[in-house]
Design a protein around this nucleic acid. Structure first.
Lengths: 222, 222
DNA sequence: GTCTATAATGAGATAGAC
DNA sequence: GTCTATCTCATTATAGAC
């Protein structure tokens, strides 16, 4: 059985941990602006006063919610990409595997990491859609920055003749799609009349990898 | 509570029009929750009291902001798709042209339709990212519903042997990417060190059409 | 560390004069 | 139709007892 990160494990039962868990849920459902510290306190079954005592402002709380899981998430994505690179040896990196490396850690955490991770993923997606001028958004971008950098580096290595701008565009289109798909709106379910579900992240990952392997390759080999 | 619904041209100079224009700007920058009716009134240079008089609740105002442009937008997209269909005659619809038909009306309005349209497009993207449980989101989805339906219908016609679910997935991935790209965060600019700009919607449309032509075709011909 | 009570602010919406 | 003044409520954050 995998050991949980000590920071999180120690906190799950504590007041701080209860608040962070509740904040994660409420922020992920309501978004930063519509969420209220009162609702979070109620959800955590903790008096309102403890919110400020433990975390200061609402902005600080949000930053800590992101910070609690972000580093592990980034590390896992980078590890998955490194594995893809290593499997390729002296040959070319497999583009489809690279796309999956970007997305799989998210899928696994969302599906098997427990409800906390699932809420976190929704929260992440929401945050990526917010204005970078928000202080909490800036903090989040800084932590995740190595991921696109490495993805782009590997793509450039895989397509040495590609025009750099097309590499950036390919990554931009792909990451945009991923970000929005993680909000889990019910659009897909309604359009397909229940045939497909956006909550089925395993299938999302598969279809996405197929589509973007072809699309990225086309753009890079232009 | 007198509620008239004149055309946009008639309203630009009126109080109603000034409020709608200001609401469009503020909502598109702040999002629904963070926007305040006070800021909108200030921006419109109109006393606060007129907000409720003309539009009732904040939710109603938002709905009217969307409603003012949505129908024309939808009509333009459907017309572009119909043109693509007609150009194909008895032959197969061009997938790349179809993708462009989905996106081009947005680009043109955002770049040449004036600042109002540009704000509206950002607002649209924000709205698509919000929870469908919000009342104003539901109204917006209802108006836009014919667009995905027609896109999917044409894709099914173009790939009669494709498994329907792959058609839905293809559309889902594409529309997700489009939605997020329209928020115009500065991510792409920063990553590419100024080489690419997400605000350059003309190029966005071109790159996107290339990528998704290949990606959608791959998924559909699986 | 925990909790209650409350301060201070800002929100959406309205009343009523003009 | 317009505008000022205000109502009512919910919010973040804090003060201070335990």
């Amino acid at each position: 059985m995998a050991r949980r990160r000590p920071g999180i494990a120690d906190e799950t039962a504590s007041t701080r941990g209860k608040i962070l868990d509740a904040a994660e849920r409420v922020f992920s459902i309501r978004g930063f602006d519509a969420a209220t510290t009162r609702e979070i306190a109620r959800e955590a079954d903790v008096p309102l006063g403890l919110m400020s005592y433990h975390f200061g402002t609402k902005d600080d709380l949000y930053t800590e919610v992101i910070g609690r899981r972000a580093e592990q998430h980034v590390a896992d994505i980078l590890a998955a990409m490194a594995a893809v690179r290593q499997r390729a040896g002296d040959g070319e990196v497999d583009v489809r595997a690279l796309v999956e490396a970007f997305f799989r850690p998210i899928v696994e955490k969302s599906m098997s990491g427990g409800p906390g991770w699932r809420a976190y993923i929704r929260l992440l997606s929401r945050t990526a859609n917010e204005s970078p001028t928000h202080p909490h958004v800036a903090a989040f971008r800084k932590i995740y920055n190595p991921v696109p950098l490495e993805f782009i580096r590997l793509l450039k290595e895989r397509f040495p003749k590609a025009r750099p701008e097309n590499i950036y565009w390919a990554h931009y289109v792909m990451s945009s799609a991923i970000i929005h798909m993680l909000v889990e709106s019910k659009t897909l379910e309604q359009l397909s009349d229940g045939l497909c579900s956006a909550a089925d992240l395993d299938t999302v990952a598969e279809k996405m990898a197929i589509l973007f392997e072809a699309g990225i390759t086309r753009l890079a080999e232009l």
